[in-house]
Write a protein that binds this DNA or RNA. Structure first.
Lengths: 337, 337
DNA sequence: TTATCAACCGCAACCGGTTGCACGACCGGT
DNA sequence: ACCGGTCGTGCAACCGGTTGCGGTTGATAA
């Protein structure tokens, strides 16, 4: 937009009418005669007039923009969520402004400011690992800005939340492993600060308890990166009594686990069955394709966005609600005995 | 922002000064006395004043927003690019508005309009498959809007382009396969409308020619989806004289190829070596990890954004330039004999 | 002829900042 | 006492639209 863009004033001058007339004509206001309307529309088309969204945003305090804050854009989960969000946002004629917090509290606060400054009509957030203080969000809520948290949700705040039921997800995965005859079931966790870690762990424990399987602390390992997961898995394999199944908490850890198993020439699922919380696309890339409790990134994005627009359209007077998507267990060869 | 936000007028009233004074005080204008400045800053902090980016954008015709149009947000390539872009954009205090064309020409045109309407200061584009007519871009360029095309570039337009050298990438991949003793080399293409398909194919042919290997049309297959690639690969394997190496043109095709090879219990790389244009993260998920000509999504995003800011800062008077990143050949077990 | 009333359109304020210019106060020098 | 120059601040226009209200015109009714 470095060059001068066409404005309604240009049209008005050329047509010898006032800019208010042009404005009204362009939106078919009944006050304007058909002749004038047609002339204005013609001229607008001819000059390739494009309404200035910024000016309208200033006037209406409505920007038609939704803000999104994610901790990271690295694979695998958040890009999928964005995929789901963008579709819904676009469908409604809105646009998406994406900001990354990079797992930094300060950046997150700054990002909230930026979105406010830009008059976004609603905000979708997955909070950073470092975020403890929630003032930047509570003041947003007090300002009456529609907001929906997803996946990485704050523990104590009155607002909409969208997440998958990780506890039952892990529970089902472990029960599935038990159902195919596995009893020495390991779990590889990710970052312990994340709610998903503790939730999935508790689902894991719950399932073992139900089936009277003792919890073996040696089977609970942590791998925040693929490399770490690989290393820890190798240690698992060296145990005098190694596991016969592994539950991976994320795509990243799954990747490390599979590398370790490949390297050790473990037979999957005969020797060790494998299941993980993997986005569907990626879970099929392994050999064998791995069973998965779909983290449903795309769906989360979709549902969170739908809820946000509900808020926007109903003037933000809805009661805060937590939407718990039940996760989908997809069984593939890695757990088919 | 449903509630009334604090404006400089609020500050002005409370302090009994004019809004111009507040405006100048907030940006440390030398005309304003220190006493006034301090008072204003105090009050601003106290009221949690946030400047209205929309108003400033309207005044300055500068929005601090970069627009991005991609054909799709589905894995694998474009999310990586966005990862690279967002980092650079954010580093410079700008924000990113992301639009998807969904491979539709009409949506692409609409998206260009939207970005113009929002006064974005620059645009990054990877064009849709359907795009033949380029008027929406040429008029942008005539309007003097900084623009950089990446990856999916239009054939005839005077503008900056960023892409990886696919021809030499494919060439090097094939030479690498030859160097490990393979001569019956197949290639699995993707959408034939894409420049990357024809470029990578021509690199493939060039390498074969150089080493006096006859081109076998049976070895040139097409799989736009993973499933299609899988099916076509199976057909390859049933040939009386099947290939001893396969070059995959994308993550998606690689996924299908590997599935077919797994199913047929082909030994990789002994029976068939495999190499593909895969994002690094994903290429390591296979068993064995596959060699790859890194499509360098993140880097493309980074370089394209850097170039765009160069344009923005130098008033868009640069000569159009095509930046050809040379691709990186990463050798992993799938081609290690 | 004059009051009435649509139909059609323009004026001006507004959204929240920025900025050129003018203005008043105060100073020192002559 | 008068002039010139700083210093600090306010006025008002501007960015590009929107909109309440009021004005003009012509036709129709009284």
């Amino acid at each position: 937009m470095t060059n001068k863009a066409i404005t309604i004033i240009d049209i008005a001058k050329l047509l010898g009418v006032s800019k208010s007339t042009v404005s009204r004509a362009l939106k078919d206001h009944p006050d304007i005669s058909n002749a004038t309307k047609e002339a204005v529309h013609m001229m607008a088309k001819q000059l390739k007039y494009k309404p200035n969204a910024v000016a309208m945003s200033l006037r209406h305090k409505k920007s038609k923009v939704i803000g999104l804050i994610v901790p990271t854009l690295s694979p695998f989960f958040f890009p999928s969520v964005i995929h789901g969000i963008e579709k819904e946002v676009n469908k409604r004629g809105y646009n998406l402004m994406i900001l990354q917090s990079n797992e930094s509290y300060e950046r997150e606060v700054r990002n909230v400011d930026i979105l406010q400054s830009n008059n976004v009509e609603g905000i979708l957030v997955s909070i950073s690992r470092k975020t403890e203080d929630l003032n930047h969000f509570t003041s947003l809520i007090e300002d009456n800005t529609p907001i929906v948290f997803f996946d990485r949700i704050p523990k104590s705040i009155q607002a909409d939340m969208v997440l998958v039921d990780d506890i039952s997800g892990a529970f089902n995965a472990v029960e599935h492993l038990i159902s195919i005859g596995k009893r020495k079931i390991a779990i590889c966790l990710g970052n312990p600060n994340l709610l998903i870690s503790s939730n999935r762990l508790s689902g894991y424990k719950k399932a073992l308890k139900k089936h009277s399987i003792e919890i073996n602390e040696e089977f609970i390992i942590t791998g925040e990166s693929s490399e770490e997961a690989e290393k820890e898995t190798k240690k698992l394999l060296e145990l005098t009594n190694p596991p016969d199944a592994i539950l991976a908490i994320s795509d990243l850890t799954m990747s490390g686990i599979m590398k370790a198993l490949y390297a050790a020439k473990i037979k999957i699922p005969e020797d060790i069955a494998v299941i993980g919380f993997c986005e569907d696309t990626f879970s099929q890339m392994y050999n064998p394709p791995v069973s998965t409790i779909d983290p449903m990134g795309v769906e989360i994005g979709k549902i969170a966005t739908e809820r946000l627009f509900q808020r926007i359209h109903e003037n933000n007077i809805l009661e805060p609600k937590t939407i718990n998507l039940s996760s989908r267990l997809i069984i593939r060869d890695s757990t088919k005995i």
